[in-house]
Design a protein around this nucleic acid. Structure first.
Ligand SMILES: [Mn+2]
Ligand SMILES: [Mn+2]
Ligand SMILES: [Zn+2]
Ligand SMILES: [Zn+2]
Lengths: 138, 138
DNA sequence: TGTTTGTCAACAATCTTTGTTATTTACTAT
DNA sequence: ATAGTAAATAACAAAGATTGTTGACAAACA
């Protein structure tokens, strides 16, 4: 995800207005590696702006997803997780505490051999590793 | 997933009763490669039993998941998908029509090198390939 | 400063999944 | 076969996540 200044520029160029609510959400997402849910971002935003609505959070997140600044991920935890790391990467999830860690690996996922692709034109591959993290492994 | 006869035995051994509703759901799942949602299974079941309830479908599916006979998968399509193929396998999803195909490949996903595992004891890896299927690719 | 146009908060609605309960059913032991 | 019992069912309500609606409001820009 780009910096708050660059996002401000991008939004304005797209005919979108910059509001304190959006700037607040930009800041919360900046360098956030926790893969927060919309609700978690909402809670963080409320610490600064007690009147912000959950709808506004969803709206801003969806706009960031649309322009490719963040990723919307579903790991089956009940709610979408949002990720400011929009480079191609994979994930490592602790099945006990639920924490989600980034796995920045380029060549871990091989191309799908065309004889297995069933005619699909494959454009993306995501890998999810699941296991127990150090802290949960006692 | 096992045969209807074997599932009947398994359920009885687990103190569960065999009802026409459950047998109907067993049959619908048998050899089903479409990764149906609970709603899709409900619709199929209603063709045979017009009074079956969605709750019964969910309950039976959850029981089958608990005993490991089927898998519950979340691809971010809005609803869980159920899969009678309970062997370790991966998936290929068409981003246009949404169909989900099995990818039965053992050694496509390499072990995660321990220096990248961040201390996790990894037990599972799922790969999801996304692309456009033949029919949608015109 | 005024005008325009997008955004906000509040609330309702939708969708998927689970909880509750009274009734019915499947199994078991007579 | 019959009756007893524990579990499953259908119907309905509720919960949790996300989206739709709308009138008041505020940001952008001249
Ligand atoms: Mn990530
Ligand atoms: Mn499958
Ligand atoms: Zn953990
Ligand atoms: Zn397709």
């Amino acid at each position: 995800m780009r910096s708050e200044a660059e996002l401000t520029k991008l939004f304005r160029e797209g005919g979108k207005k910059i509001t304190p609510q959006r700037q607040c959400i930009f800041r919360i997402l900046q360098d956030n590696q926790t893969h927060p849910s919309a609700e978690a971002i909402f809670d963080a935003a409320r610490l600064e702006m007690d009147s912000i609505s959950l709808k506004t959070v969803y709206q801003t997140l969806n706009e960031l997803v649309e322009i490719g600044e963040i990723l919307s991920l579903d790991f089956g935890t009940g709610a979408f997780r949002f990720d400011p790391n929009n480079s191609a990467h994979h994930h490592l999830i602790c099945t006990k505490c639920g924490q989600i860690r980034d796995l920045q690996l380029a060549n871990l996922v091989p191309e799908l051999p065309s004889e297995l692709a069933q005619g699909f034109r494959v454009s993306k591959a995501e890998v999810t590793y699941r296991g127990i993290c150090v802290r949960c492994d006692n």
